[in-house]
């Protein structure tokens, strides 16, 4: 069941989340509309990954209201297939016996269902997704033999293979060189237009985020900024990366 086009694809109202008694997110509210490329920035420990995992229904319980594709994250059910996710710092075994196309195929499994094997339709979609990220010619390469940037492209293809409406990426440019970083962000900009995607991306590279995204959400446990990328001033950036009061000595 799709959300209406004019309604936000992500809606967060007064979200607070605690982990081991510690406040990770405090009273955060923002919206993301369809076809936006949104950058999520903030310092380490500022709550970025927790926010993403709450949106994905992995972390709960939380206080406040969250709607993703018009539903609570824990009740996404089949709509979960409309969300593509690329996790941070993938700790997979570099010797794992899987080729790039095998990794992308895994993205189709939840839609195929238990007890069934992917067929020709799924395999065609795998090559389409690899084509989209410019990795079709490396489909048969073992995943561990690809460079960091190439691996990220394969994981983006894995997220794209289920034809999602929303793509969430947690630091996709981490461990990728500057050239690869530019190339990845250009890829995401192109995918947004070509595939009608809404993209939420975490990054530490503020310059890159500021110049390539439509809107920015800046977190340091509290919401510091949510608005057009052009509105992210140096003063706001300084505030975002300033130590949170709870981290200051004596507090």
């Amino acid at each position: 069941m799709n959300a209406k086009n004019d309604s936000p694809i992500i809606e967060v109202q007064h979200l607070s989340f605690r982990r081991n008694g510690r406040i990770v997110l405090h009273d955060v509210s923002f919206e993301i509309r369809e076809h936006e490329l949104v950058g999520l920035i903030g310092p380490n420990g500022g709550g970025k990954t927790s926010l993403l995992q709450t949106l994905l229904g992995v972390l709960h319980p939380y206080e406040g209201v969250i709607r993703v594709l018009g539903r609570e994250p824990e009740r996404l059910d089949k709509a979960r297939g409309q969300i593509g996710y690329v996790a941070q710092n993938k700790q997979f075994d570099r010797d794992f016996p899987a080729r790039a196309k095998d990794v992308v195929l895994m993205g189709t499994f939840p839609q195929v269902g238990f007890g069934r094997l992917p067929g020709g339709k799924e395999k065609t979609r795998v090559f389409e997704a690899l084509e989209q990220v410019g990795m079709r010619d490396r489909a048969a390469r073992p995943i561990g033999r690809l460079s960091g940037g190439e691996q990220q492209r394969v994981f983006i293809a894995q997220a794209l293979v289920s034809h999602p409406r929303l793509l969430i990426l947690d630091e996709p440019t981490a461990g990728v060189d500057r050239e690869g970083e530019e190339s990845l962000i250009r890829l995401l900009t192109r995918l947004k237009t070509e595939s009608d995607l809404t993209i939420l991306m975490v990054s530490h590279n503020v310059t890159l985020i500021r110049s390539h995204t439509d809107r920015i959400v800046a977190l340091n446990r509290d919401l510091i900024f949510a608005g057009a990328a052009s509105g992210l001033t140096d003063a706001v950036i300084a505030e975002v990366y300033h130590p949170h009061p709870a981290e200051m000595p004596g507090v």
Binding site: L56, V103, M106, V112
Partner: peptide, 16 residues
């Protein structure tokens, strides 16, 4: 296929 996904990348499998 679910087992392969799980042993390759538990986080991604859970999110999916």
């Amino acid at each position: 296929k679910e087992l392969y996904f799980y042993v390759f990348d538990e986080t991604m499998a859970r999110v999916a």
